[in-house]
Nucleic acid binder design. Structure first.
Lengths: 237, 237
DNA sequence: CGCGACCTTGACGACGTTCAAATCCCGTGG
DNA sequence: CCACGGGATTTGAACGTCGTCAAGGTCGCG
């Protein structure tokens, strides 16, 4: 939200060193392709709270998250917000059919992305069906998550929502090499509420309730899973 | 739900005559490819209420909806249901990464699909990047709808949900060549409720309220939009 | 005609929201 | 080192929307 202080590294970075090399779209490219691909993207840094792109903006770039966490959200005209997902390293953002982004994205904490101009990226894909296949895989994975989240939003109670969120978030961090039972929550309570279709008060109360029951411990910027089994029972998978 | 009475047309159908030729995945194929493609799919009919595939089933086929309406849904262990979408002619179903379907699909009224065995379809795609691109387009379109629906489920009131649903459903039918202000609703009230994250009673009450206010007229198997502007205002786009 | 599925309507209550205030936490500056 | 200030979070109390439970109505079909 503060005035944009975007840093662009002119070059001096290499895909082969990239932290998300194995999990991102680029995992579909071989060494030779990667060298060519390297020239298409530039690393860009965003400070906490900065907006990377907004809903309805014309799409000029695609983004590969390298580091940090982003919130992806849509706003109703009256200001109500729904967070449609959190992006983590390896996630690929910006695909759409309309030529405009269909959600907004901003940085939660410091974020590094690999930014690709739309046209050259599109041209590069033309001749690399395996890259297209990889992008398609990521889209299908997102779609599956989106459907799971619809179930959560439409059919689960507040307790279930929060418990399911904590387990799912932990699972994603584990897949990226996180720790076992201390779960960092870089997003605010308001973000969590807007993700789960609740109010900030309900989220706060539910956290407190879970803590009172010995299921979790509330820490600064996260929680500790004291009784994973109990949380799983609440999530009622 | 009744014992399966699936009819398979052995052959005698041609893609070139297909009603969804222009809008479905196959729109990406030229005449020569289409003749080859023709041998991969077979038309299958399902009666009202029959299940085409179930969540967690191993994926053996993909499906192209030719005619009719299907509900796509997920169930929680205790029986709560969330409908994640309604499929109409031109929709392509069955893509997933896990090798298992991640939702169930059944026919609402009589349905005709074009069914493709997974393996040969996969092989056919290998050498047709434009078909892959088309599939990717459909996935991205679905993703965009899914995000819109998350906003509806998480952040809209019952009135807004119902009004938004009516307008969106009408829009989809219009795109398929439907009529202007009489909107057929082949799905039950329960289906609508499970799609909107409401109960059947709330849906029914909201319909009645809209009718009392002169916004719609409730018909058998559908509604008539008496005052589209009023409904749009309620939807609070 | 009568059964059953689907839909509507009403009364009531619960879960989550709203509104309000207190508390915590951390960075800043005296 | 500690006081201050502002944002985020927690807590409390009252309220309202929507869910629950129950009854009644409508329609199609055997």
């Amino acid at each position: 939200m503060k005035p944009s202080v975007v840093t662009i590294e002119p070059n001096g970075h290499f895909c082969s060193d990239c932290a998300v090399r194995a999990s991102a779209v680029c995992s579909s490219l071989d060494a030779a392709e990667l060298r060519e691909f390297e020239h298409l993207g530039r690393r860009v840094h965003f400070a906490s709270g900065e907006t990377v792109f907004s809903e309805e903006d014309i799409t000029t770039s695609f983004y590969n998250v390298i580091e940090g966490v982003m919130r992806l959200y849509k706003l109703l005209p009256d200001g109500r917000r729904q967070i449609v997902g959190f992006a983590l390293p390896g996630d690929f953002l910006g695909m759409n059919l309309s030529g405009r982004h269909n959600f907004s994205a901003d940085a939660i904490g410091a974020v590094t992305v690999c930014q690709f101009a739309k046209a050259p990226f599109g041209r590069f894909i033309e001749s690399r069906p395996q890259l297209l296949r990889r992008i398609n895989e990521l889209a299908i994975r997102e779609l599956s998550h989106a459907r799971d989240h619809m179930v959560l939003l439409g059919r689960r109670s507040a307790d279930e929502k929060v418990a399911t969120f904590l387990l799912g978030w932990r699972q994603r961090l584990l897949a990226l090499g996180g720790s076992l039972d201390t779960v960092p929550l870089p997003m605010s309570r308001q973000d969590i509420a807007d993700y789960l279709g609740l109010t900030i008060e309900t989220v706060s109360r539910t956290f407190t309730k879970l803590e009172r029951h010995g299921a979790i411990e509330i820490l600064h910027g996260g929680i500790s899973l004291r009784d994973p089994a109990r949380v799983e029972a609440l999530a009622a998978a």
